[in-house]
Amino acid sequence: MKDNFSSQSELYAKYRPHYPNDFFKFLDSTLTSKNIAWDCGTGNGQVAYQLSKMFTKVYATDISDAQLKHAFQLENIEYSLQPAERTNFAENSFDCITIAQAIHWFDFELFYKEVKRTAKKNAVIAAIGYGRIETSKDMDHIIDHFYQHTIGSFWDKERRYIDEKYKMIPFPFEEIKTPDFSFEMNWTEEQLIGYINTWSAVKHYTKQNGINPVYKLQSMIKPFWENQKEIKVSFPLLLRMGYVT
């Protein structure tokens, strides 16, 4: 599993979007037991926090100590520094395993072997993510050009799984049919620029060229805030769910 986010963990915690409540209600409806959950690749614990409302105990893991230092702290969440593909959890431990905006970085074969080892029979596995940000037609055109051309060659090859909306990731489980989810927010210019600065390709571009390409992008989209403090942004939820049989 790659670690592209330790060096920007504060930005990640502050600017990454949160997942919609409707998704967690749907997840809850698929569960037959709510004792123990594992949130793998937890980052700053966004999903672990939501799971803590449903489960007696949540174990949350990541390979980034910097991310875990910014995680939500609750009594029934236990964080640990562990790779997705090799953990110290006992066999048949979990009623639910979630992976939010992270599964595309994993070694699928080794991770799924670990899922099958640690999951209880008929546990739910949910691979969650979010696609490309959507704003207005005119701003989307500018951001899409930045995404595909300015920093396009700086994306890790695993990014294609997100562009393919998780449809092409291997998923050897009894698949659960899911509704379409999306989430909307009103963001300031600072929030949008802060979010784009969390993109791994921005980090790679900046490291290679010595300049952050977001500065130029910000000047191009600044006029959209001339008559308003906030704009509406939305993200489609990427989702694969199944039962571990």
Rank of each mutant, 00 (worst) to 15 (best):
M168K: 12
L238T: 07
I176Y: 06
L81F: 09
F94P: 00
D62S: 06
N92A: 09
T135A: 14
E10C: 07
N186R: 10
I142M: 13
Y215A: 12
S80C: 12
Q148T: 15
F106W: 03
S200W: 06
T150Q: 05
A48F: 00
T198N: 02
Y79S: 00
V47A: 00
D156H: 13
M185K: 14
T118K: 08
D156W: 03
I142K: 08
Y15E: 06
N227K: 15
G131H: 12
T30Y: 12
T135D: 12
S93D: 02
Y243S: 07
P170S: 03
F23D: 10
D28W: 02
E85K: 07
Q218I: 10
L237C: 06
A126N: 08
Y147I: 15
N76P: 01
Q82Y: 10
Q148K: 14
D140S: 11
H141M: 15
T198P: 01
A13Y: 02
F23R: 05
C40I: 14
Q218M: 13
M185R: 15
A84Q: 09
E78K: 00
G194R: 09
E184D: 13
T32I: 14
Y59E: 03
D95H: 03
E91N: 06
V244F: 00
K57V: 01
L237R: 01
F154T: 10
K14A: 03
A90P: 07
A127D: 11
C40Y: 04
S136P: 13
Q101E: 10
T98L: 00
I196T: 03
N212W: 05
G131R: 04
P170L: 02
H149M: 15
Q73W: 00
D140N: 14
Q101H: 05
N186P: 13
K34N: 02
I133C: 10
Y195W: 10
F183G: 12
E78C: 01
A13C: 05
H70L: 08
T118P: 07
F146D: 09
L51V: 01
F183Q: 11
E91A: 04
F111R: 02
K57H: 02
A127K: 07
T178R: 04
N212E: 05
A119T: 09
D107Y: 07
Y49F: 01
T198H: 02
L217T: 08
N92T: 11
K167D: 09
M168Q: 14
Y130S: 11
S93V: 04
G242E: 05
M241F: 09
M241W: 05
Y166D: 10
L217F: 10
Q46S: 08
P83L: 11
I221Q: 09
E134F: 15
R240T: 11
V115L: 06
Y15M: 11
S9I: 07
R86C: 15
D39W: 00
D180A: 14
V115W: 02
F173R: 04
F5D: 00
E91I: 05
K53G: 10
D156R: 06
D107K: 08
Y205N: 02
I211R: 15
Q148W: 15
M1S: 13
T87P: 07
F89E: 01
I125P: 01
R160Y: 08
N209G: 13
P17Y: 02
Y161T: 04
F108P: 01
W38N: 02
F89I: 07
Q82P: 08
K216F: 12
